[in-house]
Design a protein around this nucleic acid. Structure first.
Lengths: 175, 175
DNA sequence: GCACCTGTCGGCATATCATGCCATAAGCGA
DNA sequence: TCGCTTATGGCATGATATGCCGACAGGTGC
């Protein structure tokens, strides 16, 4: 019998564990999210029925949070990527929450993390050009609640982007 | 006739332009990359045939670079995300190239950009835990070619991640 | 050792979908 | 107004998704 290992559990999601085949499925769908179930089944060494069942379970368990088309940024006219470090004033938790909500609502901000170190928040911003960034920075970012300092780092070259998550660390543990 | 606007062109890709429907398609597939063609066609207000044709064109034109499943990082046991600023020694272009190639080969590094500002490269690293990061930092990153300084910023909270690219800037230009 | 239970597999039937082909409608220039 | 170009929609066919069934293997208790 193939033994699956419980790695993650929340009250609102079914228990799940990842065996060798589940990891193959996750790796394959990271690489190509539009694989047909037949192709996927063939790739992981199952017949279509149990393969589809596993995919559905992984989705319901929250392991797979979604499927997304990746676009060419330059292609759609978004030539500038900027990593923005934001410092917020201390002792203003309610304002920090307001900051988070404001950031959520900004479509140009494609990711935002609370981080340790120099900055408090690290954002990734995507805009068509410098003019657009100027408007965003002066017109919006600097006016966000509790912001005390902003540092912009322009992406000059993309060496690697959105690479698949490494799943090798599961290899050793699962049988 | 609906007029499309040429935004991006490379010698090896067919000319393409994006009209209102194309933008709806891109937006929909960013949101859900596994939409069936029938659902997509319904959403953008076309019948399946021309809809599929447009999707294929967008793929061939390089606008859509791929489809990928998004995984829950904690769910697959990758609890730690770190933003790593790396400084490299100047005047060593060949070593900087070696650095880029080394980074490409590291599965824990999910993205890497050459940036302006304090650091030269900004990496996003994903590992299971602090022990794994210690090994990666001491055993690998610090030994990479031409590296002179490394600064690690740990992600404490994810406010927003991998949000869809904003396509609103195309609205005004296209008819 | 045997019966039973549980979990997973593979096969099958059916509804849905992808995809290529063709006729048609709408814009554009002569 | 007449063609030419381009995109659309419908249709036929082959492929796919999906739910249901029985089979089978591992584990458990008698």
């Amino acid at each position: 019998m193939i033994c699956r290992q419980v790695l993650y559990m929340r009250w609102d999601m079914p228990k799940i564990s990842l065996d060798v085949i589940d990891r193959k499925i996750l790796a394959a769908l990271q690489r190509n999210g539009r694989l047909s179930n037949v192709e996927l089944a063939d790739e992981v060494g199952l017949s279509p029925s149990p393969c589809l069942r596993r995919v559905r379970l992984l989705e319901e368990a929250g392991m797979i949070t979604g499927y997304h088309a990746a676009l060419d940024r330059a292609g759609v006219g978004l030539g500038l990527t900027i990593f923005v470090g934001v410092k917020v004033e201390r002792h203003h938790e309610e304002e920090a929450t307001a900051f988070r909500e404001a950031v959520q609502a900004l479509p140009e901000v494609v990711s935002c993390h609370l981080v340790s170190g120099e900055a408090d928040f690290l954002l990734q911003v995507v805009v068509p050009d410098l003019t657009a960034y100027e408007q965003l920075l002066l017109g919006t970012l600097l006016k966000l609640p509790a912001v005390s300092d902003i540092r912009s780092n322009f992406a000059i070259q993309t060496v690697k982007d959105r690479a698949p998550l490494p799943l090798d660390h599961l290899e050793a543990e699962a049988r």
